[in-house]
């Protein structure tokens, strides 16, 4: 996107909306066990923050490697936490709500990292 094609209105409005989108994403993740929503939907909303950031400034200063590392760690934890709960019998002692919120948060992190990686690889690398 060339400089003059970038709309000033869009960049200002998205700058104002950033915190609200973030808040909404975290709300959907953390309230996933009570209200509609959950890790996947909230993660998708969080990745929309990074995509709108691309609309404002197409700079290539996002480190995809570290995003990928975070995503892999989240995946390992998603596999490990329920296994731990099942095998070690920790589940009985821990509150169910804590477990659900923890799993929703992990899934949210993984989904937002994954969708951001997909989007930025698509935008910056796959030109033809």
């Amino acid at each position: 996107m060339a400089e003059e094609y970038r709309s000033r209105i869009i960049s200002i409005i998205i700058g104002v909306l950033y915190p609200f989108i973030l808040l909404f994403g975290f709300y959907i993740i953390l309230n996933g066990h009570l209200t509609p929503g959950g890790g996947f939907q909230g993660g998708a909303i969080l990745s929309a923050v990074l995509m709108s950031r691309y609309l404002v400034s197409p700079n290539q200063d996002i480190r995809l490697d570290s995003l990928q590392i975070v995503e892999k760690m989240a995946y390992a934890l998603i596999v490990a936490v329920p296994l731990l709960f099942l095998l070690m019998g920790v589940g009985g002692r821990l509150d169910k709500t804590v477990y659900l919120v923890l799993m929703n948060a992990l899934i949210g992190i993984k989904v937002s990292c994954g969708l951001s990686i997909v989007f930025f690889r698509f935008v910056f690398y796959e030109s033809r």
Binding site: I28, P36, G37, F40, Q41, A44, S47, M51, L115, F119
Partner: peptide, 16 residues
């Protein structure tokens, strides 16, 4: 639940 997923993914991410 499905409605939120469809709204976020279908009409936002896919369109972008």
């Amino acid at each position: 639940d499905v409605a939120i997923a469809e709204a976020v993914i279908g009409s936002t991410l896919a369109t972008i």
